[in-house]
Design a binder for these strands. Sequence first.
DNA 1: CCTACCGATCGGTAGG
DNA 2: CCTACCGATCGGTAGG
Lengths: 201, 201
Amino acid sequence: MVETTRRQAIEDAASALFHKHGYDGTSVRDIARAVDIQGASLYAHVASKQDVLWSIVEQTASRFEAAADAVEAGDPGAVVFGPGVQLISLVRAHVGVVTEDIERASVFVHEWRALDRARRDDIARRRDAYEARFRATIAVGVETGAFAEVDPALAAAYLLSAINGLVAWYRPNGRVSAPAIAETYADLSLRAVQGHRTARP
Amino acid sequence: MVETTRRQAIEDAASALFHKHGYDGTSVRDIARAVDIQGASLYAHVASKQDVLWSIVEQTASRFEAAADAVEAGDPGAVVFGPGVQLISLVRAHVGVVTEDIERASVFVHEWRALDRARRDDIARRRDAYEARFRATIAVGVETGAFAEVDPALAAAYLLSAINGLVAWYRPNGRVSAPAIAETYADLSLRAVQGHRTARP
DNA sequence: CCTACCGATCGGTAGG
DNA sequence: CCTACCGATCGGTAGG
């Protein structure tokens, strides 16, 4: 298991560096230095720099998908508890995945463009399928009248961008705890799509 | 004015390339090729690659500030029309600046980290001052009871991230027009902070 | 996991 | 705005 541990350490270091300096702003020597080996020695553990990025992005994509799967397993189609509860659960799950590993989440959100074409296309497809869960839940809310008359695609993009913005400032041991953020962001998200527009002067 | 025009063309090309590939993913040769000159010839017009990035980021920062200035000139402190109207105006202004020049806005949002330390610090300060306007407006709303009991800092970060997410997908001539996005995003933002939390099962 | 090395490309300068 | 060129660094390989 030494190999597995070493590889893990390399991906941890790469996540931190990609998070801070971006994929293109990080050299393989930077990663190697962080785990105290020579630059060329890195290739005893990884096939390429792309390979490391792919590992990080793919694992994180799977974690987002698994979290949403768990939510929908409890109430597919939002039939029992309704779209409001479903949306809150999806938002909480998303915040959870982000705050649980902010560095990998940040790389997932910002550096997936650095993937080569085939892998980038794969992630683009999965991101869209993931976002579609939010769109579907919002659409149910709009159709049943529980939510305001909002474009589900616009609202989903708005909400997910709002939450993903966490990667720019969230720090464990920061002023606001992860559960508090999840609570606040769930409230903001639900209210954003709920109710009707207030009269304006 | 030939010089000015050439410089502008270089910044336009750089904005498009930085938007698509990032600052570190773009070489000075890439920029030069886009304006049909030799790589080294670029230095007849710009001092450095950093210089080009700084121009783009600084101009865009100023456009965001000017747009918010215009809003607050109409109602400083949100005393006349109230924090709801003020927030809607700020959101609309922000969406306007983003959609008016999506490439420069994207560079401003994503590539300011590539600035050298002094300039990055400058932009960081100005970004915080800009975000503080949203925080202040939300705080007024919370204090007067017009808004829900929400942490103004969290809500402001949430809203601005939501809107900035536009740079990832907005395209002129896309499915939704810029004014329609501004309208929808203003509604989502106002509702997010307004009213009280609904009872949950 | 190391040393030694590769060709390619990087941002930038000199001199016209 | 060009040609010619610079040292530094890039991701990666060979061979142990």
